[in-house]
Design a protein around this nucleic acid. Structure first.
Lengths: 148, 148
DNA sequence: ATACCTGCAAACTGTTTGCACGCGC
DNA sequence: GCGCGTGCAAACAGTTTGCAGGTAT
């Protein structure tokens, strides 16, 4: 955990340095908050958490910083169609999809080779080479076997 | 083609009647435009097409009418994360996913039992019963075997 | 000192809603 | 005539951007 976060910090530091950007208090706080959330977070959630440390930070800075994170390759955007964009820590060379509990909203990540392979077959049937995909499942807890 | 559209018209007429709603010129035009598009359409595209027939129609009416179509069960909303909501003709008891060509933007529909079954297995592994899902694939044409 | 960065507010996009008038039944 | 529908504009939510002043290097 520790070292994976350290790796993320290092990637960002390197990106900032080599692009002539600057380290700032705000970016530090937002990064730590983002890492602490360690899952799927929205701008709003991040902003509120960040404001507990630094009251003056506004939406614009969080938006701009998250965009920076995406550019630096440490975050990726997800749009589940519920309005707000979700951000998660980008793990290089790891792809996963999502399963969302409709009751508690919890988001699970998974990866499935059978599906991935099947997707390539489907794309090929239409004469296309699969570049990427997005798959989201929604489910409800079966009684007595709840996730929440 | 003809009869499938007629069926849609009938469903809407029935819905309008049994809910004390009214037939209007605008709804007719929007419905016919929607059917003619017969694929994935945005509010904007619909509006422009509708305005060729009736210049006065505004966004609000198209939005409200498409919402009516969704309520009536003849249209369904799709959010691909590119900003605008897409609408397509709802086919009862038929589910499909989408494959989008990154070059020409063409949207293909497909259905795959292997994937559907696998999705249920995955949900079950997390203690959830799959309620619905969304899957979108993006691909590029392989040279000489283009879709566009 | 020179960029870059920040905070604020204003702009923007896609969508929804309040209201006065119009029209279907 | 009653009530739903329409068109317009204003309101919204999420996000982006311009600007004046602040700060890291």
């Amino acid at each position: 955990m520790r070292d994976s976060h350290d790796e993320v910090r290092a990637i960002l530091a390197e990106y900032i340095q080599s692009n002539g950007l600057k380290n700032t208090r705000q970016r530090d706080v937002i990064l730590e908050t983002f890492l602490a959330a360690s899952g799927h977070t929205t701008i709003e959630e991040l902003l509120f958490a960040v404001q507990k440390v630094n009251k003056a930070v506004g939406y614009a800075t969080v938006y701009r910083t998250l965009k920076l994170f995406v550019d630096a390759g440490i975050a990726s955007e997800r749009k589940f169609g519920d309005g707000q964009t979700q951000y998660e820590i980008a793990k290089v060379d790891e792809h996963h999809d999502h399963l969302i509990c409709r009751k508690c909203g919890k988001i699970f990540e998974f990866e499935d080779d059978i599906i991935e392979r099947q997707q390539e077959i489907i794309a090929a049937q239409f004469g296309l080479k699969l570049t990427h995909h997005r798959m989201t499942l929604w489910g409800e807890p079966v009684d007595g076997n709840s996730c929440c």
